[in-house]
Amino acid sequence: PIEDLFTSLNRHIERSEFEQAVKVADQVLSTNPSDEDAMRCKVVALIKADNIDDALSTIQSSQKFTFDFNYLKAYCLYRQNRLDEALEALKIQENNPATMLLKSQILYRSGEMDACVEFYQKLQKSKIDSLEINFVAGLISAGRASE
């Protein structure tokens, strides 16, 4: 039964056995391709297994889900250094802390330091661990170390 598969999937996630988690998620999806939890688990497990190519192709080949996979898609594009496409994927996203953080990292890699720093300034009130490390990197790279 599907409950047993999810119990197994959950156990693999808890043990950080991400490749096995992908296999179990695939078992669920083979009988129910529209199972959103299984699809989300598969994509996240692929990312955490550092299999970015498969994570992206899974997102792109999947049918429409209620869950918005755009952040995960943008993250995969960022990891592949497809920076323009990554920013494009985030364009329609609400500016929540996760989206702003990813945008600032993309802008940093694109060398757009002032825009990058602007997002870090907006993020300061969000209390994100270690944010200041990237903020300082942006300021230094923008030639604004004195700030």
């Binding site: 599907i2 989300r40 990312i47 995960l72 993250y75 990292q105 490390i133």
Partner: peptide, 21 residues
Amino acid sequence: NPIVLDLAYNFIDFPSLENRM
């Protein structure tokens, strides 16, 4: 080059499977 962390990664999480087991 200054050190930059992949903080966006920390926002990637599994859904809760609590009510699926």
